[in-house]
Nucleic acid binder design. Structure first.
Length: 137
DNA sequence: GCCAACGTTGGC
DNA sequence: GCCAACGTTGGC
């Protein structure tokens, strides 16, 4: 069981829109980076991912679940990249801001802090537990 | 809106 | 296959 973190600009696709899709979920398309692609491919059905809002908010707002493993991204004309389907799993009671993450020494190694540009990242079990706690879950 | 960090492209 | 130029992301 691996844990992940996916990023979205709320102006493009927000948590609320994801929630509105319900159990059916939505294709997580638009990844055009090979490191992120590798992470997408490694995702297994049923695994969980933090849902992070970049630019606006800069906070983790909830948890999504992978409901379909990697397949070719229909929005990619070059046919090199893949996407997965995810659905909203659980909202945080309180969102965990980037500021709060940076203020927590145990989270200093998070990819979110170290590789801020990577849009699909792995999260360690320790980080997962702590961030869930900070989010009120 | 600026700029640093980083990924990608293309000429050699 | 290196590396300079360029484009993009995302925090501030």
């Amino acid at each position: 069981m691996s844990y992940w973190l996916v990023k979205s600009e709320p102006s493009v696709w927000s948590w609320d829109q994801q929630v509105a899709k319900g159990a059916k979920g939505e294709a997580w398309t638009g990844v055009r980076n090979y490191t992120a692609r590798q992470n997408l491919v490694a995702m297994k059905k049923g695994e969980l991912a933090f849902y992070y809002h970049s630019n606006e908010g800069k906070e983790i707002v909830g948890i999504a679940e992978i409901i379909k493993e990697a397949y070719p991204d229909p929005t990619d004309k070059t046919e090199k990249f893949v996407c997965v389907d995810i659905k909203a799993h659980k909202a945080f009671k309180t969102s965990v801001t980037l500021v709060a993450i940076k203020a927590e020494p145990k989270l200093a190694e998070m990819a979110l802090v170290k590789q801020s540009r990577l849009s699909v990242q792995p999260v360690t079990p320790e980080e997962w537990k702590l961030v869930c706690k900070m989010g009120g879950l």
